[in-house]
Design a protein around this nucleic acid. Structure first.
Lengths: 254, 254
DNA sequence: CCGGTCTACTGGTCAGACCAGTAGACTGTG
DNA sequence: CACAGTCTACTGGTCTGACCAGTAGACCGG
């Protein structure tokens, strides 16, 4: 009896639906490479005889696969559903969902962004190619040009700059996490900044900060790039973070 | 005509399917908090009159939502599909997929993990409460106790230790991203390590590394904790990263 | 060679049916 | 009164069969 309590614990059993079996098989075929990007699955009516299930079952399976970005159905295509090239779209979507739904405080988001973008700049400073450096210079120039076109335009150019840096790291996860957390932070805060009394002054100091970071990247000084990037994020957002949570951001400024 | 070429570029038009509209609406309701975890949607037959579509359309929408982890349908439940608490399951799944399809290299994953866990230790060193420090000590003790219970058990204790550190940062995103990337990295590599000729030696050095990191955390020395954490991850995983990609990890070791 | 028509398919949607499973009301019993 | 069993009115899972709009490719007339 002690055995039954301590060792022989059973897991709850859940019925396996037919459409899940279909998903599994197709998923496995794609992941094993038996079905490469660009290739086509049989039509729904053909799949339904191969799997020996009804069309609705096939369709539900295809819906799941489609929402995971593995296949795409196009009405009228006589070749059937097409296997899509691997993309990080699903990852980005689920990450955005989590960030938007789990009631994250601004402090957490800014802290995370400081973490990601700091390291991104550090890596970019050490790993960038000359072409990538040129892209960053161009992105900074875009920001300067957007100064007179209003805050919205400037903000777009700002995001583009950060994206260029992220791309230079060569790390997909940094790009995705960076993009997601940037979008969420901006969406939480843009109104307040746009209506700030001296938004032009804000833009100017922001531009200067970006220029300083880019200098460090140009010099290949990863540590300085990271420090400056974190510091400028802090300067930009700290005032919107409740004072009692602001201390959590300080350990990242060394 | 120059106008048409340079400015008036049209985007490809894609028909919006009915089930997508249904997904959008329910998704929005969940994200806005109008529908909280644990609450129930109307039954499929009820939804089908509310949205004025057929049942198959409703079902395909629910399949998508279910595959994204937002709702769960249970046959026979008279209350209808239930909204699920937010979980990182979908995120983990899509990241695992990408990794298995080799759209994510091990180098990227390890690099990202070094980044996250380095900063996590840095924050934990500065922000931890005495209780959290005690939890980490306990987790390390668990690892020591697991030394003789085989590699699988040791690995579990290892992951638990990292989770404790992540929790001490107080940052949800760090916890989630950390957990996901840890799981993915481990699942990619565990066989190779478990069958290593001297897995006990590996465990011993790993234990020592963790103890060193914990020392730094105890001292409140964030920078040292970060450096040690990154270094030990590098030492642990570098040999499995193809040599030509290993250089991308070095900028994080300063 | 080329623009239009035709045809045989595709996926998207709907209606209706059946089944197995569930929760909660109902029942008869002690 | 308490409680085990039955009943009932639902639920979601699946299948069938139908219709429509859209597409690709064959076919055709110029």
């Amino acid at each position: 009896m002690a055995n039954l309590d301590q060792q022989l614990r059973f897991a709850p059993v859940s019925p396996v639906r037919a459409y899940e079996r279909v998903v599994e098989q197709i998923e496995a075929a794609v992941l094993d490479g038996r079905l490469g990007p660009g290739e086509h699955l049989p039509s729904e009516r053909e799949l339904m005889v191969q799997f020996d299930v009804g069309r609705s079952t096939i369709r539900e399976a295809l819906r799941v696969l489609q929402s995971n970005g593995l296949v795409r159905s196009r009405p009228g295509d006589p070749r059937g559903p097409q296997v899509q090239p691997m993309s990080s779209g699903a990852l980005e979507k689920s990450m955005t969902m989590l960030a938007r739904a789990s009631a994250l405080s601004l402090a957490e988001l800014v802290q995370f962004r400081m973490l990601i973008e700091g390291s991104a700049n550090q890596l970019a400073a050490c790993l960038r190619t000359p072409e990538q450096l040129a892209e960053m210079e161009a992105a900074l120039e875009e920001m300067r040009a957007a100064l007179d076109e209003g805050f919205a335009e400037f903000s777009r150019a700002d995001l583009a700059f950060h994206e260029t840096v992220a791309k230079a790291t060569g790390n997909t996860l940094i790009q995705i996490c960076g993009a997601v957390v940037r979008d969420v932070v901006v969406s939480l805060i843009e109104d307040k900044i746009a209506h700030a009394p001296d938004s032009r002054a804000l833009m100017l100091t922001s531009l200067q900060h970006h220029a300083n970071v880019l200098d460090a990247v140009r010099d290949g000084d990863g540590e300085r790039a990271a420090r400056l990037a974190r510091q400028s994020l802090y300067d930009y957002y700290a005032e919107y973070v409740p004072e009692e949570q602001r201390a959590a951001l300080h350990p990242l400024l060394y």
